[in-house]
Design a binder for these strands. Structure first.
Lengths: 311, 311
DNA sequence: CACTCTTACGGCACCCGTAAGAATC
DNA sequence: GATTCTTACGGGTGCCGTAAGAGTG
């Protein structure tokens, strides 16, 4: 008898980058997934994948089966949406966020998800936008929060918030006017996340469109590390507004103005359009609820001098 | 994870007369079926059946699930219809036929089905039409061949053939004209299958509509036995035309004419509308191919005197 | 040689059927 | 007491993961 497990295995194998990634998404071993597909092929009496090449590709029969399997899985998901009491749902959820998210509302989301689904195992990963997007597309992540839109039509998106970024430097570098000028850019290094990150793409666009020349570029994949570099006077860094808010943030990090100002960066929830699992859909809904990018970040608490010295 | 087996069990339990009958149709033990339903209830966190009474009835949640399960099973069946190579399908098929069918084309059907699906186990039952219909409705049979239409809207039908029936008697009873008159009916017993049989219903209608009075009625559930009674001179019997064909049949059974003639009896293939299993659908198609009610019957071969004595 | 998928195999978990139990009519 | 469904339990098998194998680029 054909089972939903088998069809699920086939579907994700057919639409993921490899059997291995499909297996990871389904939380089974790769050999188990391979076996499930073999069973299907046995039942149908035909090959679903052509294994002659380096990687398996769909045969004609596989192409026919793909939409049928999708329909069946859809129907099964609808049934679950209606019937299932998933308050005690167990399972895994893998998702990706940028570093900014990881330091603002990620704990809120995890807390809410854990409270709603105590048996669910959450597996967040922090990475830059381009890597997150690829992992969503390949089926590694159930969803991801990424700055900017996806270029892939198989990925659905929903806007979450606009976040303002600003340049900031150490007091000694910033000067009195706290304004980033073209002259400064020609002298001082600027430090950003790697090129795949949404904020970096936005900043590069801003630099290009305004014909700013940049002396040196430094990239680092940790925003906290960048803050350390900036404080040490290595250069000017790019930070979300919440890191630089008045009365909060490290006194050694001074927000600068620029002309024109940096445009706001829009964050989107990304997920594979063909992922209809109801539980994941609810988790995505919870992301929308708690996604507050203006929260004071966790690593960078409001600094009130521990001992206030008067006079 | 919810499985198709579980939903199948639920669906047939909900639409069959009892868990036991549903289990028989699915070829599993009743306890196994019960367990599958319990598992569903566990997953959904609600009762699907109300077990307080003598027999289980659907709860509100069960009523909601029923069409969803039906849809999922339909989708799964469509997938199988497209993909499955069922030439080597294994399984069981239970069906019912009337005695006339059992003695004409049933062997042809069994032969064809066994040839097409060597691993399929066929389980034909012979009974009268009303019993067959009930068994189809309750899910015991996958299909049945019955004279006349069903009164139940859940049963689909397809006409197979019109069969003519005739009265026949022993030569001593029939007389020269071989005509059944109202006078004869008042004197001689008529012998038919039990009241639930289609031919009997047809004959009763004929008697009533023509205001014939009948001296005595005998019923017997075996057509061969009725033939024996008729030949012994007990009364006049009702037989399908193929039993009485010229040059065939037992010489001691003489076909009679009647005024008005008996109307033809239409045989229909009956099955549960909600049974969408592709294999069963193909078997039903095979029934249509081989259903030849005018075949000489198996028990009643053309009688050619074993030894022809001349002179 | 890195990567992808298959095969072999030991172990465990699940599911099945038998049989006894509980509840209803 | 007959019927209907559940529970308990032993047994078998099907499925999973580990690990090694085969083939490709």
């Amino acid at each position: 008898m054909t089972t939903l497990k088998q069809l699920e295995a086939f579907y994700w194998a057919a639409t993921s980058a490899s059997f291995l990634i499909a297996a990871q998404r389904l939380h089974v071993s790769q050999s188990s997934l391979s076996k499930r597909i073999s069973e299907l092929e046995g039942q149908f009496g035909r090959q679903l994948f052509d294994r002659s090449g380096h990687k398996a590709t769909l045969t004609e029969a596989g192409v026919i089966l793909l939409p049928l399997a999708r329909r069946l899985l859809n129907t099964a998901d609808e049934l679950h949406t209606t019937m299932a009491d998933d308050s005690r749902a167990s399972g895994h959820c893998r998702f990706g966020v940028g570093e900014h998210t990881s330091l603002t509302w990620l704990p809120d989301f995890v807390a809410l998800a854990r409270k709603t689904y105590p048996n669910l195992i959450l597996e967040p990963s922090v990475d830059i936008g381009s890597a997150l997007e690829q992992h969503v597309d390949h089926g590694v992540f159930d969803f991801a929060v990424i700055a900017g839109l996806s270029s892939c039509s198989a990925i659905a998106t929903k806007p979450l918030a606009d976040v303002r970024f600003h340049w900031a430097g150490a007091p000694s570098l910033v000067g009195k006017q706290k304004k980033l000028t073209a002259a400064m850019l020609r002298e001082v290094a600027i430090i950003t996340m790697p090129v795949g990150a949404g904020a970096t793409r936005m900043a590069d666009l801003w630099l290009t469109e305004n014909n700013f020349e940049v002396a040196r570029r430094l990239t680092c994949n940790s925003l906290a590390a960048i803050a350390g570099l900036v404080i040490a006077g290595v250069g000017i860094g790019l930070f979300p507004e919440s890191w630089l808010r008045e009365g909060q943030g490290h006194q050694a990090l001074v927000r600068m103005t620029s002309d024109p100002p940096l445009p706001p960066l829009r964050y989107y929830l990304h997920w594979r359009r063909d992922d209809t699992r109801p539980l994941v859909a609810r988790l995505r809904g919870m992301v929308e609820q708690v996604a507050d990018f203006s929260k004071p970040n966790a690593l960078w608490p409001p600094v009130k001098p521990a001992v206030k010295v008067r006079g």
